[in-house]
Design a protein around this nucleic acid. Structure first.
Length: 505
RNA sequence: GGCGGAUUAAUGUAGUGGCCUAGCAUGCAUGCCUCUCACGCAUGAAACUCGGGUUCAAAUCCCGGAUCCGCUACCA
C-alpha cells in the first residue's frame, strides 16, 4: 500500500454554493497530493436526487479555478476512471449492492419513511440495528417469495448494511490517532434506495474510492462517526488491503458564539463564507463571495491553509509552493478552528502590498471607470503606489485616492478643529503665492522650496502642512503632500487652495 | 439522551515529560519615525478548562468533572 501512488479526492455534493470549509478540505487534499507527487480528483456526489441544485457543479469548478487549485482528474477534466459524477455510475453501484446482498452483509427493507418515523416516536433512541431489525419489514423477517413478490409489484425498498453487534472497530486516523467505536452504536445504514436507483453516500464513496484507487480520505470531522461503517464495508467487499487511510479534519467554527460556521454567519457579520458570489436559484437569495469582496486568491489560500494547520514556523506568509512543501497531516490540529476575519483581512492586506503598482492599477481601473474617471496608466500606478500600504482591499482604493479625482466639497470638522490655526489663512495665502511662482512643479523641488520658507520664517511645519492638507484633500490624511500636488498640477492645486480659503471659517 | 471528538492569551497557533520565566502571528495599547493617516521599527497587556493521580520532573501521560463540537436521516 505504501508504494501506491498517492491519490486523494474532493467529493462535494452539488447542493448549493461551496462552503469555505469545503474549500479548505479541498485545499488540504490538494496540498497533500502535491506534496507526495500524487493526484487530486474531483468527484461529484449527487446521490441525493432531491437535493440537486442547478449551477452548483459549475460553481464548484469555477471556485477552484479562481483559487488556483487544479484537479488532475474528475468532472470537467476527465480521466481513466470516468464517469466522476455518481448519478452516472448507477450500473456500477447496483452490481456492488448485489454482492453485499449475496454475501449476506446487506438486506432488503421495505419499511416506509412513515413507519420508521412511527418507530422512532414510539421507541426512545430507536435505531435500525441488530436489536430492532426483527421489528421491520425486511428480507430478514420475510420469506424469500414474499420479498420477490413485493419487488415484482414495484414496491419501493432500500438495502441496508447488516452490522454485526458488539464489535470494536478501530480507525487509525492520521490526525487523531486510533479511534475506537463499538458497532452497537452503528445503525444498519441505508446503502441503496430503489426509489431513485441510487446508492447513498456510504456505499458510493466506498465503491468509488476503491475503483478510483484512492489512497487517502481527507474529509471533515463530521464523518468520523460513520467511518467505522466505511471500514466495515471495505471488509465486506474484501478490500481491506487497499483501504485508504483516513484523516478527519477539524471543523470551521463561527467567529463569535457557538457552533460551526454556517452560510448565514457571513453576511450577518460582514464577511463572505463562500469563495464566489452565489445567487440561490430557488430563493434568489444572494450570498457574497471572497472574489467579489476583493480578496486575492493567494491570500484566501494562505489564510485557509493556516486555519487548522500550522507548519510550526515563526511566520504566517507562505506561497502555495511553500505550503505544499511544508504540508503535513500530522500537524493538523484536532480542535475546531474559529474563523477569524480580522486575520483574513490582514492576509489580504499583505498580499495587496506584494502586488506591483501596475497590477494594482489594473485591478483598480474598472472600479475607477465606474466612478467616471479614466487617467493615464502611469499616473494611476503612481497614485496606487502611494496608498497601497493603507488598504486591505482593492475597493478601499477609492476611499484613499478620491481626492486625486474630485476636489473636496466639504472640510472635515475634526481636522479643522485640530489643525486649522488662527494663522492658517495668512499662511495659506502666502503658500499659494510661493507655489504660484514655482515653474518646476515637481514633488522634491517644491518640498525643498516650501521647507526652506517654513524654516526661514520660523513657521510651524505641522501647522503649515496640515492646513495645506485640509485645503487640498479636505482632511488631515493621505500620502505625502508634495507627491499629491505634483499629480494634481499647479492650476488645480491653487484652485483648491483658494476655494478652501474662501470657505473655511 | 447515547456515542465519538476536542479543550494553550480576544482569535489562529507553537509546544509530543526537563530547553516553558510558555514562543509566533492577528487584533489591542504605547513609543519612535513623521506635515496627517498608513507602512516600518520598538515596547506592553494578555493563555496552559478544573480536580485528582503517575513521575525526581507535566501544558505535555492516566482518571474524573465541566464546557464546546460532531454524529445519532431512504443528507452529504
Amino acid at each position: 500500500m505504501s508504494d501506491r501512488k498517492v491519490r486523494v479526492r474532493f467529493a462535494p455534493s452539488p447542493t448549493g454554493a461551496l462552503h469555505i470549509g469545503g474549500v479548505r478540505t479541498c485545499l488540504y487534499n490538494y496540498l497533500f497530493a502535491k506534496k507526495h507527487g500524487g493526484d487530486l480528483l474531483l468527484r461529484i456526489e449527487d446521490t441525493d436526487s432531491t437535493r440537486f441544485v442547478p449551477g452548483a457543479e459549475e460553481y464548484i469548478i469555477e471556485s477552484f479555478k479562481w483559487l488556483g487549485i487544479k484537479f488532475d482528474e474528475g468532472v470537467g477534466i476527465g480521466g481513466d476512471h470516468a464517469p466522476y459524477r455518481q448519478s452516472e455510475r448507477r450500473d456500477i453501484y447496483r452490481k456492488y449492492v448485489d454482492i453485499l446482498l449475496k454475501s449476506g452483509n446487506a438486506y432488503i427493507a421495505f419499511d416506509t419513511p412513515e413507519e420508521l418515523e412511527k418507530l422512532r416516536a414510539e421507541i426512545p433512541n430507536f435505531q435500525y440495528d441488530a436489536k430492532t431489525r426483527s421489528m421491520g419489514k425486511n428480507s430478514l423477517t420475510m420469506s424469500e417469495d414474499e420479498v420477490k413478490a413485493k419487488i415484482a409489484a414495484g414496491e419501493k425498498y432500500v438495502v441496508r448494511a447488516k452490522v454485526e453487534p458488539n464489535e470494536d472497530i478501530v480507525i487509525d486516523d492520521m490526525v487523531r490517532g486510533k479511534v475506537t467505536i463499538n458497532s452497537n452504536v452503528l445503525d444498519d445504514k441505508v446503502l441503496y434506495k430503489s426509489a431513485d436507483d441510487l446508492p447513498t453516500y456510504h456505499l458510493a464513496n466506498i465503491v468509488d474510492d476503491h475503483l478510483m484507487e484512492v489512497t487517502h480520505v481527507i474529509r471533515g470531522e463530521e464523518w468520523l462517526p460513520s467511518a467505522p461503517l466505511h471500514v466495515l464495508l471495505y471488509r465486506y467487499f474484501g478490500w481491506q488491503d487497499t483501504m485508504p487511510r483516513f484523516a478527519h479534519l477539524p471543523l470551521l467554527l463561527k467567529p463569535v458564539g457557538n457552533g460551526k460556521l454556517s452560510k448565514r454567519d457571513g453576511d450577518k457579520l460582514g464577511f463572505p463564507v463562500f469563495p464566489l458570489r452565489w445567487v440561490d436559484p430557488k430563493t434568489n437569495e444572494v450570498s457574497s463571495g471572497y472574489r467579489e469582496s476583493g480578496y486575492l486568491p493567494e491570500a484566501v489560500v494562505n489564510f485557509l491553509a493556516l486555519l487548522g494547520w500550522n507548519p510550526g514556523l515563526d511566520r504566517d506568509l507562505f506561497t502555495v509552493e511553500e505550503l505544499t512543501e511544508l504540508f503535513d497531516l500530522g500537524h493538523v490540529s484536532k480542535s475546531g478552528a474559529r474563523f477569524d476575519y480580522e486575520k483574513a483581512k490582514w492576509f489580504n492586506h499583505e498580499y495587496i502590498i506584494k502586488k506591483s503598482d501596475a497590477e494594482l492599477a489594473a485591478m483598480y481601473k474598472p472600479l475607477l471607470k465606474e466612478k467616471g474617471y479614466e487617467i493615464a496608466d502611469a499616473t494611476l500606478e503612481r497614485i496606487v503606489g502611494m496608498v497601497k500600504t493603507r488598504i486591505s482591499f482593492v475597493a478601499d482604493l477609492w476611499e484613499e485616492t478620491n481626492f486625486f479625482f474630485e476636489a473636496p466639497t466639504e472640510y472635515d470638522e475634526k481636522s479643522i478643529k485640530k489643525r486649522w490655526k488662527e494663522e492658517s489663512p495668512a499662511l495659506m495665502t502666502e503658500l499659494g503665492k510661493i507655489l504660484e511662482g514655482i515653474s518646476d512643479f515637481t514633488s522634491a523641488n517644491m518640498e525643498k522650496i516650501v521647507m526652506d520658507w517654513i524654516e526661514k520664517n520660523g513657521h510651524n511645519t505641522g501647522t503649515v502642512m496640515n492646513s495645506f492638507r485640509i485645503t487640498i484633500i479636505g482632511a488631515a490624511r493621505g500620502p505625502h503632500m508634495f507627491d499629491i500636488i505634483e499629480i494634481l498640477g499647479k492650476e488645480e492645486t491653487l484652485r483648491r487652495l483658494n476655494a478652501a480659503l474662501a470657505v473655511i471659517k
